[in-house]
């Protein structure tokens, strides 16, 4: 979860809050389920990569044709032996 700083502009805070709210609404996920989804994705990916857990971004974007689930997970390195 992002902690919004007081000096962030209100419009930016609104945008970030909405994005999170809409992912949960669109997926029909509770905040708890959403967190566990995130954890499980991380768990699977960590088997193969060293990842930057703090900067993971999850988004569910709706375009005219379809909804796209998107997870941006910065990879530090590929784990050896895989």
């Amino acid at each position: 979860m992002n902690i919004f700083r007081k000096n962030d502009p209100a419009s930016r805070v609104a945008e970030e809050r909405l994005k999170l709210i809409l992912i949960q609404d669109r997926l029909l996920l509770s905040p708890q389920d959403f967190e566990s989804l995130k954890k499980e994705i991380l768990k699977v990916l960590s088997k193969y990569f060293d990842i930057e857990e703090a900067s993971i971004k999850i988004n569910l974007e709706r375009t005219k044709e379809k909804s796209v689930f998107e997870a941006i997970v910065p990879v530090v390195s590929v784990k050896k032996g895989k």
Binding site: P9, A14, E15, T63
Partner: peptide
């Protein structure tokens, strides 16, 4: 308000809702 970054601008509403 939008110019002062206090209100959502219309481009982000379009973007968020798709």
């Amino acid at each position: 308000l939008v110019n002062k970054n206090k209100m959502l601008n219309f481009e982000s509403i379009i973007d968020i809702l798709g």
